[in-house]
């Protein structure tokens, strides 16, 4: 599948006399294939928005290579800008214009047919409120307007930074459906969000960034599988057999955590080996359930941002991977 977005070794450094040097992007890599809905995840301050701004020509990179739709950017941005719709960070519009005026002016600047304004207003559910000034809109309505402005060009690549921010539950579901519909129509969607449950539901693939570097990437299932702890919960026919089972499993090299009515096993490659081992000891399993990991737990593990009781994590306290210029544990170079 051809890549519509490629980033290799992207670097951006901010220098300040007071605060010294900070690497916002430290050799970041990313690849998004055509037709996918791709999740772009990272803790606050990890470099997500800097990546998107750099990709869209708003920030000048200090190193690395970027390409959109097969064209090197930022040089070719004027060529590809008409095919890339984007909202970056929170939606920002001139507050005294109506939604229709806002979109109409953007359409004029981009030489998009005026009829497209009505289409996108309908699409994001703002048709009946399009004559009201943007300053009267709620955050969710502004978010819808931002998505409408990004869709105005009917782009091949849609980049949305936190599109569900401020949306009500119905709006979030509508946004999810819209993303899927757009992807099915051939549009590639890059979605940056902190609502990881949504990302897991919507996205085909993900990239996780931490402290300016990629820490994981690939199809969602693969990322989850790669970071599955191999945890298994077992119950035996007789609760009184649990201590014997614990001893047998521990001797076999499996990490066991005891509970009153079940055992939690960690580091189990093949659940069948557990049943075989216990059967040999005449211990019979009544329940064996692999514990599935979700994206949130993988994210927290990879970025080391899980809350710890009694500690107050600071924004930049997250996982940094590899040495200088080294790729992350899940691979480097041009994507998966």
């Amino acid at each position: 599948m051809p890549a519509v977005l490629e980033i290799e070794g992207l670097r951006k450094t901010y220098k300040s006399r007071r605060r010294g040097t900070r690497n916002a992007l430290d050799g970041f890599d990313m690849r998004v294939d055509a037709g996918q809905v791709h999740g772009f995840l990272g803790p606050n301050g990890s470099g997500k928005t800097t990546t998107l701004r750099t990709l869209l020509g708003l920030i000048r990179p200090d190193g690395g290579r970027m390409a959109l739709l097969g064209h090197e950017v930022p040089d070719a941005l004027p060529t590809v800008a008409g095919q890339v719709g984007a909202i970056v960070e929170s939606p920002q519009f001139f507050p005294h214009f109506t939604a229709r005026d806002t979109l109409s002016l953007l359409a004029g600047a981009g030489e998009v047919p005026a009829v497209r304004v009505d289409e996108v207003l309908e699409l994001v559910g703002l048709r009946d409120r399009s004559g009201e000034r943007v300053k009267t809109y709620s955050l969710g309505m502004k978010q819808r307007l931002a998505v409408a402005s990004a869709l105005l060009k009917n782009p091949k690549l849609l980049i949305l930074d936190e599109p569900a921010n401020g949306l009500d539950p119905g709006g979030i579901r509508e946004m999810r459906t819209l993303m899927r519909t757009l992807a099915e129509s051939g549009m590639t969607v890059v979605l940056s969000s902190h609502i990881l449950g949504e990302i897991q539901l919507i996205c085909d693939s993900v990239t996780i960034i931490s402290l300016g570097r990629r820490v994981a990437f690939g199809p969602v299932d693969e990322v989850l599988a790669q970071h599955s702890s191999g945890a298994v919960r077992i119950r035996l026919e007789a609760v009184s057999d649990l201590p014997v089972a614990t001893e047998a499993l521990t001797q076999a090299g499996i990490r066991v955590t005891g509970h009153p009515d079940h055992l939690m096993l960690a580091g189990v490659d093949k659940p069948a080996s557990v049943t075989r081992l216990l059967a040999e000891k005449n211990l019979y399993v009544s329940e064996l359930a692999p514990i599935a990991v979700d994206l949130e737990s993988v994210f927290l593990e990879l970025t080391a941002t899980a809350p710890v009781p009694g500690q107050h994590r600071q924004v930049d306290e997250s996982m940094k991977v590899g040495g200088t210029g080294q790729p992350g544990p899940a691979g480097g170079g041009w994507g998966a």
Binding site: P74, L77, A81, G82, V88, Q92, F94, L106, A109, K153
Partner: peptide, 18 residues
């Protein structure tokens, strides 16, 4: 000035990157 402070300039540059 209002274009800069309300983000309108950024929006416009996403459409016209020159």
């Amino acid at each position: 000035g209002a274009e800069w402070s309300t983000g309108g300039m950024m929006n416009l540059l996403l459409w016209r990157p020159k």
